[in-house]
Write a protein that binds this DNA or RNA. Structure first.
Length: 867
RNA sequence: GCCGGAGUGGCGGAAUUGGCAGACGCAUCAGACUCAAAAUCUGACGAGGAAUUUCUUCGUAAGGGUUCGAUUCCCUUCUCCGGCACCA
């Protein structure tokens, strides 16, 4: 029978839907398995084959787990709130409220056509009031705990998106949505106090089965650094300047102090003679864009305040400067400068002719410093502490500072609080009311959700106020506390608020009395396997961990880490035509981020002469016009072939260069499986177990051994996310099957034992089920089964059948393989030696030489060393 | 600059604990089937050498080391990818 994949796939997708095959319910006595892919925001470009690089392998994983008897939770939903969706709606002149469900429907249909096993009854949409009601509820919880607060600080402002951004949303000083350079703008904004959890977020990384790189990124982002705070007295005053340093052991080398230009003490410390210079410098620093200030390569600038401080360890007077290389946002905004052992301080000291003193040495001697020497070593020029090794000195000086009451050991983090408010329409409104009498008042729980009003024009205002501020009916309200007139908060929450708890909602999506019931959470959570792109390393994954810990601390959850196992899929790259930039503007101006390649727009492709087209591999995206759609591939090769290709083409975490030749190869394989199984049907007998031959032929033994080995291998490799080698193992098996039971036209050539053929056919069908589920269902039915193969038990393997009975043992002479002997499995050393000595070649090599030693590794190797 | 990860045929990639390098697939070539083509099936396929169904040398970015034995462990160098980057 011909492999009519379209017919088979449509048929089974319909049956799965009708029979609700993938619906799951809490079954306390059954072991659960929760597999989750980061929920996407539904974009108008639809899904492309790159997205399936994630969804398809995890789907195979779920199907495998179901066959193993697990109660599998595999949900899907839409990260519908937030800038990506809103930006897209604006681009298309649509209202996101109408657009989102439409695009979600398109995603859903593509996923269904790819054969993905989602429980669609649990579909969630973060822009649904029934969902964001609980996002607001968690906001209020954080507020109650003092973990949500409003403060005015210079924030990252994207002039193109017209909203503030969290630090995590800024990369290379650009908005990560639109690549526009961000500005610093002081504005009252809402923050979540994630820094209060910095230590736990860092420590608990140890427990997680995440890639090394992923954990490292989180560690770097949290940026814990141990050091000490030291108070420097200001000469002739009782003012103190507190500095943070990671090297308190270099205090004797501190020859000046630098404050950030924004430091609150600057005005007070500036003397009349320096006033003009300092004022000018501070003004310049304020006016300067962040990008210039953070540019580490430009030369240092700064001015003297006119005042000195006293170095507490030696009583020396040292000058106080201000310079923009010190940031107000980190540590105390003031540093003690040890030019001998810090590159930046060294450069500053050289430029302004400040003294440089060596206080750490490689070997305890003093020598001339050509440049800053960053090292741990032996203290020198440090009075009675000279001679102490760095680590010891750090501890001693820490205690000394504490005793004197002028300092203490401290820990500092790079992580900043999470800026959550957005001056945008498309997000969950922040449930706070501003009352002239009572101040900031949380909206009572019973009044949730604070509905996002339906409006015609939702475009960002650009004034720094959300478009909601222009809707009087929304803004004007009464204070929940005193019932006087009050104003609603008009900022909305950034999209990451929604995605910080959605994995909890999937456990109990319909609950209208809580974000999820405790029993559902206890049963389904935490997530057993979580997958998604690496781009969320420092944002979503950090935020979600933070919220989970807060909910845990409130006794609302029984676990502290939401995603114990995380894997990041690679992306698909397409060969894409582009061209060189033509103007300076296209190059990105004078900026350091140089654009040297611009994707050709569709209408440009015919206009640009062929010799000017530059082809490159680029990530698939609709905007580049290089996408391959799953629907197209499904039509031409079938969903099962597409699935097999997505898994076989490369390891899960690797990027892939898309080619259509590859999918043809996978299609050949799937069709070959189909043909063999169709031929085998004629010989199939369900009672094959009872009629397996007692005396197997060599061929039967060989193919059955391969079969049982493959069952073992495929299971183990799915567990470890090695989908590519799992498919390869089935390919090997199929090759062996064709060799042992070849086809003659459309039938099995005469000869093979029906029981063995039956075992092969049945087991192969089950092995294929996670990868090519439609084909497997069809054959499973042809084999006379009524229940879905999704619930069929994963085949067991017999270790005795799988065991090789004879092995090749390599014979090495002086480290080189010279011969091999075929011996029984687990054959002992003596026998292998005797066999080896029978070999002419070995005999010849050993003649006249003295054997020094022999190393024997069972089933592998006999290594003979001789002189 | 600092911190991760990686480097294997023409290509994607595979190789338990250090033990037959190149599984599986793509591409290519040859053969079978066919009037022909497609599809399918079979075979060859790292590089070099020789007395060419066989034998042999080299070969996992480069160089060194440990070891009976290294793609695997250690050191040095190079390249690529990713993250951070005036964070005191």
């Amino acid at each position: 029978m011909n492999y009519n994949f379209t017919e088979i796939e449509v048929k089974w997708q319909k049956i799965w839907k009708e029979k609700k095959t993938f619906r799951v319910a809490l079954e306390g006595q059954r072991k659960k398995f929760y597999c989750l892919e980061m929920f996407p925001y539904p974009s108008g470009s639809g899904l492309h084959v790159g997205h399936l690089k994630n969804y398809v392998p995890t789907d195979a994983f779920c199907r495998y787990k179901s066959m193993q008897g697990f109660n599998v939770l595999h949900p899907m939903g839409w990260d519908a709130f937030g800038q990506p969706a809103e930006n897209e709606a604006m681009r298309r002149g649509r209202n996101p409220r109408e657009m989102v469900p439409e695009y979600a429907a398109s995603y859903r249909s593509t996923l269904i056509r790819a054969g993905c096993s989602y429980d669609w009854e649990r579909e969630i949409n973060s822009s649904d009031p029934e969902y964001y009601r609980w996002t607001q509820w968690i906001f209020l919880l954080l507020h109650r705990l003092g973990l949500a607060y409003r403060s005015t600080a210079p924030i990252n402002w994207c002039p193109s998106c017209k909203t503030g951004l969290a630090n995590e949303e800024v990369k290379d000083n650009r908005c990560w949505r639109c690549d526009t350079l961000v500005e610093k703008k002081p504005m009252p904004q809402w923050f979540f106090r994630i820094t209060a959890y910095a230590d736990r977020l860092l420590a608990d990384l140890e427990k997680l089965d995440w890639s090394q790189g992923m954990k490292e990124m989180q560690r770097d982002w949290i940026g814990r650094s141990e050091g000490a705070e030291v108070d420097f007295a200001v000469a002739g005053s009782d003012v103190k300047i507190r500095v943070f340093t990671t090297r308190p052991d270099t205090l004797f080398g501190a020859t000046f102090i630098v404050l950030a230009p924004e430091h609150p003490l600057v005005a007070q410390l500036t003397t009349a003679t320096q006033q003009r210079k300092v004022n000018a410098y501070v003004r310049k620093a304020q006016g300067e864009s962040e990008i210039d200030r953070l540019n580490a390569t430009r030369s240092k600038t700064g001015v003297f305040t006119g005042t000195d401080a006293i170095n507490p360890v030696n009583g020396e007077r040292i000058p106080i400067w201000i310079a923009d290389y010190v940031l107000m946002g980190y540590g105390t905004g003031a540093i003690m400068c040890v030019p001998g052992h810090d590159v930046r301080d060294f450069e500053f000291a050289k430029k302004f002719k400040l003294p440089i003193r060596q206080v750490v040495s490689r070997d305890g001697t003093t020598y001339n410093l050509e440049s800053a020497e960053i090292l741990e070593g032996i203290a020198v020029n440090s009075s009675e502490w000279s001679g102490l090794p760095t680590a010891e000195f750090k501890q001693t000086i820490g205690r000394w500072l504490e005793d004197k009451g002028i300092g203490r050991p401290t820990v500092n983090y790079r992580l900043r609080d999470w800026l959550i408010s957005r001056q945008r329409y498309w997000g969950a409104p922040i449930p706070i009311v501003h009352c002239p009498a009572c101040g900031e008042v949380p909206v009572p729980e019973a009044q949730l959700p604070v509905l996002l009003p339906d409006v015609e024009n939702y475009h960002p205002s650009g004034t720094g106020e959300s478009p909601l501020a222009a809707i009087p009916a929304f803004v004007h309200t009464t204070c929940p506390a005193c019932h006087g007139p009050a104003r609603r908060e008009t900022d909305t929450m950034g999209g990451y608020a929604c995605s910080s708890w959605y994995f909890l909602r999937f456990a109990d999506p319909g609950n209208d009395g809580a974000f999820a019931s405790r029993s559902a959470l206890d049963y389904w959570l935490p997530v057993d396997v979580y997958t998604g792109g690496i781009e969320h390393a420092r944002s979503h994954l950090l935020y979600a961990r933070f919220w989970t810990k807060v909910l845990f601390d409130q006794g609302l959850l029984g676990f502290e880490e939401p995603f114990n196992l995380l894997r990041n899929q690679g992306s698909l790259l397409a060969f894409t035509p582009g061209r060189r930039p033509r103007s300076l503007e296209e190059k990105g101006g004078s900026d350091d981020k140089i654009v040297d390649w611009i994707v050709l727009k569709h209408d440009e492709r015919d206009q640009v002469p062929a010799d000017q087209v530059v082809w490159r591999w680029a990530r698939m995206s609709k905007s580049k016009g290089n996408v391959v759609t799953p629907d197209d591939m499904t039509e031409r090769y079938g969903a099962d072939s597409l699935r097999v290709y997505e898994m076989f083409v490369a390891p899960f975490e690797d990027d892939v260069h898309w080619s259509e030749e590859g999918i043809q190869g996978s299609h050949r394989f799937v069709a070959r499986v189909w043909r063999w199984l169709q031929a085998a049907l004629a010989l199939y007998r369900p009672d094959w177990r009872e009629t397996l031959p007692r005396q197997e032929t060599e061929t039967e033994r060989r193919v059955r051994r391969k079969l049982h080995q493959t069952v073992q291998k495929v299971g183990a490799q799915i567990e470890t996310f090695q989908f590519n080698t799992a498919v390869a193992a089935i390919m090997e098996l199929l090759n062996e099957m064709y060799a042992c039971a070849p086809l003659d036209r459309e039938e099995l050539a005469p000869g093979p034992n029906p029981a063995v053929v039956s075992e092969l056919a049945e087991t192969l069908t089950l092995l294929m089920a996670p990868f090519a589920p439609h084909l497997a269902e069809e054959v499973w039915q042809q084999l006379g089964r009524c229940e879905s193969v999704y619930r069929a038990p994963w085949p067991p393997f017999d270790p005795v059948v799988a065991a090789a009975e004879a092995v090749n043992v390599m014979i090495q002479v002086n480290g080189k393989i010279k011969d091999k002997v075929r011996v029984a499995l687990d054959c002992d050393e003596e026998t292998v030696k005797q066999e080896a000595m029978r070999s002419e070649k070995i005999k010849q090599l050993l003649s006249g030489r003295q054997v020094v030693k022999m190393i024997f590794i069972k089933n592998k190797m006999l290594s003979i060393v001789c002189k």
